[in-house]
Design a protein around this nucleic acid. Structure first.
Lengths: 147, 147
DNA sequence: AATAATGTTGACCATTATTGTCAACATTGT
DNA sequence: ACAATGTTGACAATAATGGTCAACATTATT
């Protein structure tokens, strides 16, 4: 039940973008260095976020990426949907046809509740919430500027 | 974010045991057939449940396995702990040392909430709850006797 | 005691998903 | 024209999962 690194790295990259207050886009290169992700891998992680309308990108010199919307309008559930897909712990939740027992299965009901618990957290949290929490933590512990 | 088949199969096997009202133990062979799991694989799934004190086993002819406790005293969280380990979506929740940013990381806080949401569901559900839900569903849809 | 039916254990293997890397390309500011 | 960026697709390494197989241990039955 681990999240993929795609989702972890992607979320941290988005938070870094959200923390970047200037208008100018940020280089992938810089995010890769900050977050200790290889540049080629980060490119592949960013791609679905661009396709999903969370990130805008500009090519060429002085290019880079930036948030397509304000941080308070980006919910974490969108990020995980794009990078991780559904959080359903078992296939039969999204796809009841894969198992003939789906409708009568009571373990499936439990796994469904688990999914709902996770979804609720991610639906109710925006990038802006992360930004604010980060600022609070940074204020409390000035030495910790990491994301 | 999928559960392993170990956990899914193991939970279904335990539910089958819980539904089996007689005193006599159940053959692994029979559970394997009912749940469509290969016998050798089921043996490996059962092993940690025996070691964890959820299942008792008897060797020899007329042997088999049975629940070590009453269904209302077996919480699903015990099962997932034995078969899946922690539900932490990221390693740094159980093991902050793996990442120097742990204490300052705000994404980690979100993943922690996700874990707590899942744990809450599994802590508050017992095998007996599954048994009751199963009986309700069976009564409503008599043709669906599956687990 | 012999035997057959069960569960136990450990070694092993196949498949798949993840996690990347690399190279060619497209775009754009200077 | 060129250099700096992002884009895309093919590919590879690695690890985890899901499973098999064979040898063994135990016990009821005869």
């Amino acid at each position: 039940m681990k999240l993929s690194t795609r989702t972890r790295y992607g979320t941290r990259a988005l938070l870094e973008l959200a923390l970047h207050r200037s208008e100018t886009p940020v280089f992938l290169k810089d995010i890769a260095r900050e977050q200790e992700i290889s540049l080629p891998y980060l490119e592949h992680i960013i791609a679905p976020l661009i396709a999903g309308g969370i990130i805008r990108s500009t090519k060429g010199p002085r290019g880079g990426i930036s948030l397509a919307r304000k941080p308070q309008d980006i919910r974490l559930i969108e990020i995980t949907r794009l990078l991780e897909g559904s959080l359903a712990p078992v296939e039969c939740i999204d796809n009841p046809g894969v198992c003939t027992r789906s409708s009568a299965c009571v373990t499936r009901d439990v796994w469904t509740k688990m999914k709902e618990g996770m979804d609720e957290v991610l639906e109710s949290t925006t990038l802006q919430d992360l930004v604010e929490n980060h600022r609070k933590k940074s204020a409390a512990e000035p030495s910790m500027f990491y994301i």
